[in-house]
Amino acid sequence: MNRFLHDLWRNRELLQLLVARNIKIRYKSSILGFVWTLLNPILFIGIYAMFLGLLKVAIALPLLVSGVIVWSFLDMCLGDSLYAVIGNTNLIKKTSFSRPTLPVAMVLSNLVNFVLSLIILGCYLIFARVSPQHLWLLPVFVLSQTALCLGLALIISAMNVYFRDTEHILAVVKLAWFFMTPIIYPISFVFDQVSPTLQKAAFLNPMTGLVTAYRWVLMSEDIIAPQLVTMSHAICWGVLAVGILIFQRAERGFADEL
């Protein structure tokens, strides 16, 4: 972990350039450019709201909006992590530089997008007359989610070098994960339906804790189980530690496999 951070600090200029490159390239050839980052979740929210209405599932719109925006950060990172390493085959094979900068830069560029969408989300919440609380905690949650995203990005980007099946597995896992996380339903839904043991299990999914925490600060939702939310956060950092270990072991073989 120490070595990892030290390495990143030494390569901060490279990271900065790679983040700029990623953001620039993502929107380079699309007409709407950055607008897509916002338009995408808005369109998704529209679709979900419509179908949830048809299915008569009761969820307040601010809950849904915050859930989808928080999820989209993870979703983008997972999708991009498949190609964070193998999409830079030429760099890996022909130049020597600190390999973790690739997935880190990818997560950071998505973080930039996420922070911008959080600002838009804030505007919407003011418009919807929802009042936040303890806003100073928001950066802590963003940091935890970034740790989770980075941990998974390190694992997935390294795995995809060795096994190209990763892409197909990820698609299924992502879908299941989406429905297991209280995004299109409120967390109270979980507490109403299942036994206390399963409630705890629900928070083993770190996204459950994160979404709950975001909703707590952004729209003053009551936290039903603060200790479970804390556990979710701890898991995020655990995933990062595991991700770093896996990536450091795997990176030695990248140039051989690509």
């Binding site: 030494r10 390569n11 200029e13 490279l14 350039l17 790679l18 490159r21 620039k24 390239i25 380079k28 050839s29 760099l91 130049t95 530089f97």
Partner: peptide, 18 residues
């Protein structure tokens, strides 16, 4: 990177070399 300008690529290549 093909989409970046020569100038941007020079600085990126430099950063890659540390």
């Amino acid at each position: 990177h093909p989409d970046l300008s020569g100038r941007e690529n020079v600085f990126l290549a430099g950063a890659i070399m540390g």
